[in-house]
Nucleic acid binder design. Structure first.
Lengths: 147, 147
DNA sequence: CATTTACCTTAAGTCCACTTCAGGTGTTAT
DNA sequence: ATAACACCTGAAGTGGACTTAAGGTAAATG
């Protein structure tokens, strides 16, 4: 099965210009052409899924290109690819932990403003604020403030 | 307690230039000065924590400025601030869910390459690949590939 | 047969969040 | 007193990831 650049664009909701940009950056190292026109196959679909994933994990385009080049080189680069994935795994785990703290802070602020709306002011809040919050809210507050 | 811009820079490991940039973008709406020099207080420390948090949640500088302006306006903007935090909470939850999928993909790839290293090739892997993976790995694969 | 459509290229432009530069003031240390 | 610091400003520069513009080819549709 093969696809045109426009097919891929619709399937993944990615602008055609972005797909061309990725190609120009070497992110599809095996992409074939028929009289100048790019022919995408399931191989490129897999690569595109991987690109999106690696981007979300925080890799830059040139690092993704490096990974794609390693993949092209075959079995001699298993080790490098494994190490890259291990590093990314650690990085993602840190990012998730960080996001949990952000989530706690935002949950705390949601509670805070809903209480402020109820009371019409922040007076009561300011009194309980460092250490006398309701138990469940205190947990969020402490998590968000690293304590 | 007050702090100089250099103090804050060291405490939070943020370049002085970034703090000046934040100030120039209106992210410290109450920041005082003594003969031209910025005087940071605990209020600005709280704001800086909030800036970092909102940035991590995906807000742009101008949206953070909006939030800070609302905060300056007092009780009349509780509702807007509550709504912003609610939206961000939802967004963070989506981001965490997305990161979990990325994590599953990267965990799967870690397993994949460690197996490839062990085997010296991907032949065995390619045979089990769509549906005959070891049970725990299959879960990762399915999660990462939305199935 | 003309125009619309889908593809192509290279180069320049955009957006965001900083960062660097050039030049200046005021206080402290040798 | 001179140099080293820590602060200041406004303007220009940077980096990354696209996006847009300008101009062209080739197949297909009215």
């Amino acid at each position: 099965m093969t696809y045109s650049i426009g097919d891929i664009s619709k399937m993944y909701d990615i602008p055609v210009s972005t797909l061309r940009y990725y190609d120009s950056e070497g992110l599809f190292p095996d992409l074939q052409r028929k009289s100048g026109i790019r022919i995408f196959t399931d191989r490129e679909l897999d690569q595109l899924r991987m690109i999106e994933c690696l981007k979300k994990s925080g890799l830059e385009i040139r690092e993704i290109r490096q990974f794609m080049e390693w993949a092209k080189q075959g079995s001699s680069t298993y080790q490098q690819r494994y190490e890259l994935m291990s590093r990314q795994l650690e990085s993602i785990e840190n990012q998730i932990a960080e996001m949990r703290k952000v989530q706690a802070m935002v949950q705390y602020k949601c509670w805070y403003y809903s209480k402020a709306i109820e009371d019409g002011n922040e007076d009561g809040l300011k009194e309980m604020m460092p250490d006398h919050l309701p138990e469940d809210i205190q947990k969020l507050y402490d998590l968000a403030h690293d304590r």
